[in-house]
């Protein structure tokens, strides 16, 4: 249902990812692995439409997706960027509400639904998002993306700077929304354990290209591969 075809992009004149193609099927969780600086974040930004395409395109449900990120969001593409980027001078509730309203959903219902998913946000509902700690912001960013009722969710380094118990909780939530609501997930991560716990297969990137595609069991078993590709 979600495809990248020949994705080539970067910043200014510098090309970072070249001719990357990958696919996430309906209801699937796929990981994007690779060392620092291989272009995982750039690929995620390409997919969300945050950077212009030098070549290639994105397909949603077999149709070429529009280039504007807001239109992709309305087609069901949810994006949680690296570094969270919550709206700092808006309350937690507003962060969630605005995402729902912008994609044409009822914003009050969205806040209530988010609280059911993430009870830890409840006491913080009227606090400014900028005052939350890193882990709380990460959870809020996830809740905000879910408020757009996506069918495919792009997660960029969701565990960075988050405490182990919340990482654990987050893995649980992601598994649940995947199975219960059928939301497909593409997650770029450094944390191999986290990926192995939620993803069924993975793409491994190297120098801006997809080096290989591998399923969970192969990756888990093959320590030489882990060593070689990921520097684990």
């Amino acid at each position: 249902m979600f495809k990248l075809v020949g994705a080539t992009g970067g910043y200014g004149k510098t090309t970072i990812i070249r001719d990357v193609s990958l696919e996430v099927r309906h209801g699937e969780v796929v990981a994007l692995l690779g060392r620092n600086g291989v272009g995982k974040s750039t690929l995620m930004r390409f997919a969300s439409g945050s950077i212009p395409a030098m070549a290639g395109h994105v397909e949603i449900d077999g149709k070429v997706a529009p280039t504007a990120p807001e239109k992709r969001a309305r087609l069901g593409l949810g994006y949680v960027p690296q570094g969270r980027f919550v709206f700092p001078r808006m309350t937690v509730a507003e962060n969630i509400a605005v995402a729902a309203a912008a994609t044409g959903h009822d914003h009050k219902a969205a806040v209530a639904a988010a609280l059911a998913d993430f009870p830890m946000l409840k006491p913080k509902l009227d606090d400014l998002a900028g005052g939350l700690s890193g882990g709380q912001q990460q959870v809020l960013a996830l809740a905000r993306a879910l408020a757009t009722q996506p069918r495919i969710l792009l997660l960029d380094e969701p565990t960075e700077g988050v405490q182990p118990s919340i990482i654990d909780e987050m893995a649980g939530i992601l598994k649940r929304i995947n199975t219960e609501r059928g939301i497909a997930i593409l997650v770029a991560e450094q944390d191999l354990d986290f990926c192995l716990s939620i993803a069924g297969r993975a793409y491994v990137m190297e120098k801006g290209r997809i080096r290989m595609e591998v399923d969970r069991d192969t990756l888990r078993a093959d320590t030489a591969l882990q060593q070689d590709l990921l520097g684990v």
């Binding site: 960027p81 919550v86 507003e94 912008a102």
Partner: peptide
């Protein structure tokens, strides 16, 4: 809300569907 979101983090505002 949209106005404040758009200017606080423009890239993110677009990513959640706001025509910033």
């Amino acid at each position: 809300m949209k106005a404040r979101a758009s200017i606080q983090v423009p890239e993110m505002a677009r990513a959640i569907g706001i025509s910033s």
